[in-house]
Simulated scan of single mutants.
Amino acid sequence: MKFTIKMGIPEMDDLWKRLQSEFHKNTINKQDSSLYKKWGKALKLLSQNPKHPSLHTHDIEALSNRYGIRVWQSYLENKTSGAMRMFWVYGPEKQTITIISLEPHPEDRKKGAYDRIPLSKLPPLE
């Protein structure tokens, strides 16, 4: 089952388009190139199978409770300091996944670490 991927806020869409453009023009810096490749791979896997083993997808209870909809986290990378995480929800249309944040993993394991994760405004659900 294939999913359509949407960006939850214009800034995320702008970031993706900027990275893509700079990559194809060969003007991208090393750090952005790495992010582009990892994010692109994760988006491809997510669209094909949100529960692909390498994504380590799991719901984040604190964020789900805050927003009243199940919020999922998938890995862009693992076992590295500040490893990037992609936060997403199903919807608003069927077979659609909306990316609502791209953030480093909260290093602080203390209660409330996910309270500091900013998420985009969720689109209306159908």
Rank of each mutant, 00 (worst) to 15 (best):
120 S>P: 01
64 S>D: 02
115 D>G: 06
86 M>F: 07
12 M>Q: 15
34 S>A: 14
76 L>M: 12
109 R>S: 12
83 A>I: 01
36 Y>N: 11
12 M>W: 05
52 H>W: 02
86 M>C: 14
68 G>P: 03
84 M>F: 10
19 L>H: 03
47 S>L: 03
108 D>P: 03
105 H>W: 00
1 M>E: 12
103 E>D: 09
83 A>W: 01
98 T>A: 09
70 R>D: 07
1 M>H: 10
43 L>G: 04
97 I>S: 05
12 M>A: 13
2 K>Q: 13
2 K>S: 14
89 V>H: 05
110 K>I: 00
85 R>G: 10
55 L>S: 07
97 I>H: 05
101 S>D: 08
55 L>V: 06
117 I>P: 05
26 N>T: 07
7 M>C: 08
80 T>N: 10
29 N>M: 06
1 M>R: 12
48 Q>K: 09
91 G>R: 09
8 G>Y: 04
10 P>Q: 13
33 S>H: 11
99 I>P: 01
19 L>S: 11
7 M>G: 04
96 T>F: 01
73 Q>S: 14
93 E>W: 02
49 N>E: 12
35 L>N: 02
80 T>W: 00
18 R>G: 06
11 E>A: 15
42 A>Q: 02
7 M>H: 14
84 M>L: 12
41 K>D: 13
66 R>Y: 02
50 P>T: 02
104 P>R: 06
74 S>E: 01
20 Q>R: 13
75 Y>D: 15
58 H>G: 10
116 R>Q: 09
120 S>C: 15
104 P>D: 07
47 S>H: 01
35 L>G: 03
75 Y>E: 15
93 E>F: 07
14 D>S: 11
94 K>M: 08
31 Q>C: 01
12 M>R: 03
48 Q>Y: 00
50 P>I: 04
31 Q>V: 11
46 L>C: 08
24 H>C: 11
111 K>Y: 02
31 Q>T: 08
87 F>A: 11
69 I>K: 11
31 Q>L: 12
93 E>T: 05
95 Q>W: 00
123 P>L: 09
76 L>P: 06
92 P>M: 04
65 N>V: 05
106 P>Q: 04
49 N>L: 07
15 L>K: 15
18 R>E: 15
91 G>N: 08
85 R>H: 01
58 H>R: 14
126 E>K: 11
45 L>F: 10
119 L>D: 05
100 I>Y: 01
88 W>G: 07
44 K>E: 14
66 R>I: 00
41 K>G: 09
119 L>I: 08
42 A>S: 15
60 I>Q: 08
94 K>T: 06
65 N>I: 04
86 M>G: 06
90 Y>A: 10
107 E>L: 13
76 L>C: 12
22 E>V: 00
29 N>R: 03
37 K>S: 15
18 R>D: 15
25 K>A: 15
43 L>A: 09
49 N>H: 08
48 Q>A: 12
92 P>E: 03
38 K>I: 00
